[in-house]
Design a protein around this nucleic acid. Structure first.
Lengths: 210, 210
DNA sequence: TTCCATTTTGACATCGAGTGCGATAAATTG
DNA sequence: CAATTTATCGCACTCGATGTCAAAATGGAA
């Protein structure tokens, strides 16, 4: 029963003051994704999404800050996991190794999620308005990586080196995601690992494995 | 007389059909920049900008696709220069060397332009709405670099390696710009070079010069 | 049961970005 | 002067986003 947490009579759910929600973040997110995928992002209005789950436009904006945010699923949670992963690494493990492993492990998805993920990434990297918004979400990701790099390098988080590393890491990770999303491989982790190997190698030789 | 090209009686200017422009792209861009810097980006409306140069709101949108675009100065021209620079390099010069040099040389600015440039970059990397839009403009930059890398690596432009390199290069270049803009150094080129050295070195050692 | 506190939802108004369209103003050419 | 060309203007409209307030639904306490 993957209906998640919108069931009003949820089992084990304890007493609940006030009116019960008539929808959920997830229901709105899914409805939005499907509408975006079928009609196109720009052609879908917030009213359409709200109507698809039977709520008013205003209610949509109680669950999401903006129409764009509806496509970012559980990004906040993934970000928190990345932070934990980076924070709990052994201090003697090389910086780039830690980073690669952390990015790979925070991006494991079950087989059932891959189809939707592919659609999400496809939209995010294709629709101008979503490309634009991605920069804002990715900035949060960058900050986490920059903080980690700053600790490892003994610099301030907004010094050039940590910032350059964070942005470069974001770049190769995004390249891996896009490449995966536009192909038909199942191995997202493999693409991420390959991209980070290129980065660690300084893009030096035409052939990445010596 | 830095009033540029909006002078109706321009010397040597030859005959000119139709009504003369009552403003110019540059005048609008400057007015926008000053308003953004003083009142803030969000608090400045397109009407404000148009009014500042004595023109209607509708006319603003004849010169810029959007309010956000008003801050991107001569980006298109810089992009064309980057493309030329990358295309005309000696085929035996190492890829990363060519790239570094091209980025440095396409970002030389005269001393008179540095103050405005600092404000532009500060806004672009600070205001959420402009951070977002930067992704769209930077995507054009990435495409140019990816095409160059693809030629050098003998791959298609949207293969993982060229894409990863292009995005990583963009990342470190942006880090250099931000770092420069938030400091008080005059040496933008130096920052860019340092960032690319980190990238070429794979962020391997804590100390970038071996 | 009745009343209250809490929470979600909805209706309405408002603002600003962006677009389409047609009218008008100013300039050159003949 | 008329025809043509180009730039500007005004207006109406859509849509995303925000603020405000009233209404609906629910659990708990009196």
């Amino acid at each position: 029963m993957p209906v998640a947490s919108s069931d009003p009579a949820s089992p084990g759910g304890y007493a609940h003051r006030g009116r019960r929600p008539s929808t959920s973040r997830e229901a709105l997110s899914r409805a939005a994704l499907h509408l975006f995928a079928s009609r196109g992002y720009e052609a879908t209005t917030v009213d359409d999404i709200a109507a698809a789950v039977g709520v008013s436009r205003r209610t949509f904006f109680r669950y999401f800050e903006s129409k764009r945010d509806a496509i970012w699923g559980e990004f906040d949670a993934e970000l928190a996991r990345l932070e934990t992963e980076l924070g709990s690494a052994a201090p003697d493990e090389p910086m780039m190794d830690v980073l690669t492993r952390a990015v790979v492990t925070t991006n494991r998805f079950g087989a059932g999620e891959l189809d939707e993920l592919r659609i999400r990434i496809g939209l995010i990297s294709t629709v101008p308005s979503l490309i634009a918004h991605s920069a804002v979400r990715y900035a949060e990701w960058r900050d986490v990586v920059a903080a980690f790099a700053a600790r490892r390098l003994g610099r301030a988080p907004d010094d050039l080196a940590p910032q350059a590393l964070a942005r470069a890491a974001l770049g190769v990770a995004a390249a891996a995601f896009d490449s995966w999303a536009s192909g038909d491989s199942d191995d997202l982790g493999g693409a991420v690992e390959q991209a980070f190997r290129l980065l660690s190698g300084g893009f030096g030789d035409g052939d990445p494995q010596p």
